[in-house]
Design a protein around this nucleic acid. Sequence first.
DNA 1: ATGAAAGCGCTAACAC
DNA 2: GTGTTAGCGCTTTCAT
Lengths: 318, 318
Amino acid sequence: MNATSSDVAKHAGVSRATVSQVLNGYAERFAPETAAKVFASAAELGYEPSAAGRALRRGSSDFVVALLPHTTFGGNLQDLFEQMTVTLADHGYTLVLRMAGSAASTLDKMIAGMKPAAVFSLTPFTDDERAVLDRRNVLAIDPPSVSQVDYNRAIGRMQGAALVEGGHTRLAYAHLRDERHDPFGFAREEGLREVAREHGLPDVQVVDVSIDLDRASASLGELAVPGVAIACYNDDVAMALLAAARVRGLEVPRDLALIGMDRTDLSRIAVPRLTTIEYDMVAAAGAGTASLLQALGAGAPRPTAAPAVLSLIAGETI
Amino acid sequence: MNATSSDVAKHAGVSRATVSQVLNGYAERFAPETAAKVFASAAELGYEPSAAGRALRRGSSDFVVALLPHTTFGGNLQDLFEQMTVTLADHGYTLVLRMAGSAASTLDKMIAGMKPAAVFSLTPFTDDERAVLDRRNVLAIDPPSVSQVDYNRAIGRMQGAALVEGGHTRLAYAHLRDERHDPFGFAREEGLREVAREHGLPDVQVVDVSIDLDRASASLGELAVPGVAIACYNDDVAMALLAAARVRGLEVPRDLALIGMDRTDLSRIAVPRLTTIEYDMVAAAGAGTASLLQALGAGAPRPTAAPAVLSLIAGETI
DNA sequence: ATGAAAGCGCTAACAC
DNA sequence: GTGTTAGCGCTTTCAT
């Protein structure tokens, strides 16, 4: 096992250069039967090119590094990265994941050492990260460079529109208290604010919510219930407020309207069923991957329109 | 930027061989002032050794691949991998993450191409994965090779013990219906069965539960309620059954006892508060990292005793 | 105490 | 059409 291109060359009775060319998409330069012999030998020997050898020669590797947001790592994100892994593999790239939180110095080491073809992030790079990436001269892709659409603002707007549509006029935004888990909140709050302004509604109230019954209940106490309509950072926040409302004897949506975000599995067991927004990770990953590939010089041209990745999931909490 | 060892050598006025030796822990072979010059030059130029060059020379890279289980472990997962990233970096290894689900063929490609120092998984390797790893001759570390303790069986036993302790005699095990998300269920069910046997209780009933109110309610209908005590695959399953019980007008724990697993954030907003089991990821990561390092020939000897990573979280559902 | 030389596996330019 | 050659950056004998 672990055949090299020399082994393949020997087995096929050709030179290493020929093996390399054939296996790298220039098969048509050769006699069909030569190419066939090469393919057959490679398959028979289980040959896979050495990433190290190739990287050394080409100056950069086939690795694409994705920085994982320091946010709850649920099933959705997993699906997203899984799809990216597969799509990138189709184009010869290998996706590896990396915790974004880990110190910038170790990021630097990794970048410098592994010379990835690109570094990708779902959230904007921090200044430290950006500095490292620039210094090491790596293709860096983050949301601002992928799309002009600010999805987080759009999410806030969509939540606001749904609440207004339901006849509510006093809007509030509920952040997740632990900021580490809420990298998107402020843009969403801003989207909600915009909707309030556009409809001439009073300014939105803001609360921080912990995923804890007592503390969520206390947060509810900060708002002027009944009569408030809350756009939540995610479904966990919404579920916490829903439970708190029940404990406080408030009826949803009569006394308190709620809209979540993410359509988590657990939001399906809420009583009453949670109104929420679904983010189509697969579509988003497709768009992200597409612009990544394009930036890498592979793949199709960038789609002109941003894909529709947000959809409202009807429930009974508005 | 992106200096090579030649650059450092030139800058320090020594040979590349000297740079390599000094920077790889053999500084004391040289005159102190020579070593100092090398260190200074390396730092000044921001030199980081090329992973490709090193891997090519050494035959295997400094990468350690961690396979991510396709399961939602709550936010703890991140803390775990972040800690592993840092600890391994201290020993010169670079941790990269990889979705376990992605087809075995792309795993093979990655392993063959990147020649990682080790592949690590929190869940036992599948037969496919094991085959790939063996064939490519890679150091493979999974829980069975880390510890003789079967944590999943231990979890089932712990759940059973808690239910028996609470005076319940008719035990049941609730799997998550989507098998893709339930890689550990059967070992846990087996642990529960053992407890039932040891206490002379009737055999445990088994149900599959979906995270969906109606379907969870139907699952409840399959069990002989009231009077059953259910060990759940995870807190999500427990929360679904809790909501279903409420809809059906069953009182917990009088008509139905429940114990979850994972202590997710959301289990803290259950009413009544969910009794569950917490898995100490950080301790587990510490143990895993230790044995990984030992297997790699670095690091301290393997701790003799398995760390205590499971603890019962009191609630009101038993 | 330090340097010269060889070679890991690969691919691109060029020769034939 | 196919092979020869050179060299990517590194580490490791082996000389000196």
